[in-house]
Amino acid sequence: MEFQGNVEFAAPREVVWKIIRDPTTVAKAMPDFRDLVVTSPTSFTGSAKVGVSVIRGSFRFQFQIEEENPGSFLRLSARGRGIGSSVDIQTRVTLADGGSPTATRMEWKAEAQVGGALAGIAQRLLDQAADRTVRDIFTNLSRLVREGTAAGP
């Protein structure tokens, strides 16, 4: 399943970069994220409750920054396991100059693979649930960037 979107922020790229590169931002964007542990400069772990409404399960995630080009590109993988299932998300975030000199345009693409019990038992709802979940995460992320940039560098 692939999802993508874009959003523009009224802040320069280095400011946006700093926020999205921060594990705590990612943690805050995930639903009910707990137990953030930064295990190395490019990896961190924690657990989040993924799902929609009452159908939701706790997943332990390992995040790994697979590739980065400060200020312009980030590839982040998230491998989650829980409720007899796996959720693997590969995310590519590209930052570019926005419409004005102080604006940044963020494009994101996410590729999600769900395995195990969820993939089979919930397949009827998977497309829509995944779509909603990924979009919620990026909506949160955008909000966090906005809040962060509003607070000033």
Partner: peptide, 14 residues
Amino acid sequence: YGADGQLLASSFTD
């Protein structure tokens, strides 16, 4: 099975 190897008919629902 899906192309990714997931069994789709994994309960009596499907």
